[in-house]
Simulated assay, not measured.
Amino acid sequence: MGGEDETHRLRAGSFGAVAEEYGRLRPAPCDEAVEWLVPKDSGTVLDLAAGAGTLTALLAERVPDVVAVEPDDRMRAVLAARRPDVRALRGTAEAIPLTDGRVDAVVVSSAWHWFDAARAVTEIARVLRPGGTLGVVWNGMDSSVPWVAEWQARVRPETAGTRGEQRRQWFHDRGARLREDIASAGPLFGEVEQASFSCVRAVAPADLAALLGTYSRVILLPEEERRQLIARAEELLRERLPQGEEVLDVPFRSLCWRVTRL
């Protein structure tokens, strides 16, 4: 158990080492997903575990007041440089530096699995006004698209034939766990809603390959192994590049949950 805890801690703290690349390469959730997650009448929204500000930028286009909370100083510095108009505060999901009932919505992008959920749910409920919403989203390449699954399997052969199913199971497990986390905190929230959104983004092969280097399992690989993996990923993507083109149309999927504070 101790080894698992240490691995979790290392992975959770690894992103700051690639903060600039994270901010440049990580794709934001699909626009429709953001619209679904954030109520239209929201005045103040908290981007919790905001990272380098990928989602923060989209929120700031839609909401008058956005607060970003991020524990890693390196990630938060990139966020602040990208969005100087947004308050970027040091804090965690378990200790949010805001007063009670301060926000209309809390949004968490691809970070819930790093939280101490029992403490986080109570703390999120504290800063939300009654009737406010918690939105959680995981965003990534859509492995149900055959060429994406094939590319991922060729980059990491150990996942051949299983990647799409693993991804579907991963999303299912995340949703089930989120519902358990919300329910275990007592009568703080209503029923959890779920939705899925797809979108396509034009991405250069070099950037899509480098994106792999912003995920914790790859960040923690030995340097030479990580370099070879990314180089192999780019080589395979260039094989798919249409003649005369410089970018690929890449499908992404945002799986979302939202729940209302009672």
Score class of each variant (00 low, 15 high):
residue 220 L to V: 09
residue 203 V to H: 04
residue 137 V to A: 13
residue 221 L to K: 11
residue 15 F to V: 00
residue 62 R to T: 05
residue 248 L to N: 04
residue 25 L to N: 04
residue 189 F to Q: 06
residue 202 A to R: 10
residue 141 M to Q: 12
residue 139 N to P: 03
residue 97 P to F: 14
residue 36 W to M: 08
residue 33 A to I: 03
residue 223 E to G: 07
residue 107 V to P: 08
residue 44 T to H: 08
residue 151 W to P: 03
residue 75 M to Q: 14
residue 251 P to Y: 05
residue 86 V to A: 00
residue 92 T to A: 07
residue 228 Q to L: 13
residue 118 A to M: 06
residue 230 I to A: 05
residue 139 N to Y: 05
residue 93 A to Q: 04
residue 213 G to H: 02
residue 33 A to V: 06
residue 84 P to W: 03
residue 31 D to Q: 10
residue 94 E to T: 13
residue 113 H to L: 05
residue 51 G to T: 06
residue 22 Y to R: 00
residue 206 A to Y: 01
residue 250 V to G: 10
residue 52 A to G: 08
residue 159 T to N: 09
residue 18 V to G: 01
residue 10 L to A: 14
residue 7 T to M: 14
residue 139 N to R: 05
residue 142 D to L: 09
residue 87 R to C: 00
residue 52 A to S: 13
residue 187 P to W: 06
residue 235 E to S: 14
residue 135 G to L: 06
residue 217 R to M: 03
residue 58 L to W: 15
residue 238 R to G: 01
residue 226 R to N: 01
residue 10 L to E: 14
residue 256 C to R: 12
residue 62 R to Q: 10
residue 162 T to I: 12
residue 152 Q to N: 09
residue 73 D to A: 13
residue 175 G to T: 01
residue 27 P to S: 07
residue 259 V to R: 03
residue 232 R to I: 00
residue 132 G to R: 12
residue 20 E to G: 00
residue 33 A to N: 11
residue 60 A to F: 02
residue 193 E to R: 11
residue 158 E to A: 15
residue 52 A to R: 02
residue 140 G to Y: 03
residue 22 Y to K: 04
residue 59 L to E: 15
residue 110 S to E: 10
residue 103 V to H: 10
residue 226 R to Y: 03
residue 187 P to R: 13
residue 225 E to N: 07
residue 238 R to E: 14
residue 67 V to H: 09
residue 126 R to M: 06
residue 159 T to Y: 14
residue 97 P to Y: 15
residue 197 F to E: 04
residue 39 P to K: 11
residue 202 A to Q: 07
residue 114 W to T: 06
residue 172 H to D: 11
residue 38 V to K: 05
residue 162 T to D: 09
residue 113 H to N: 07
residue 104 D to G: 12
residue 13 G to A: 09
residue 211 L to T: 06
residue 17 A to H: 04
residue 235 E to R: 12
residue 3 G to R: 15
residue 97 P to Q: 08
residue 205 P to N: 00
residue 5 D to C: 01
residue 198 S to H: 07
residue 26 R to V: 02
residue 191 E to I: 08
residue 247 V to C: 05
residue 123 E to C: 01
residue 1 M to I: 09
residue 128 L to F: 10
residue 106 V to H: 12
residue 52 A to W: 07
residue 126 R to F: 11
residue 160 A to C: 01
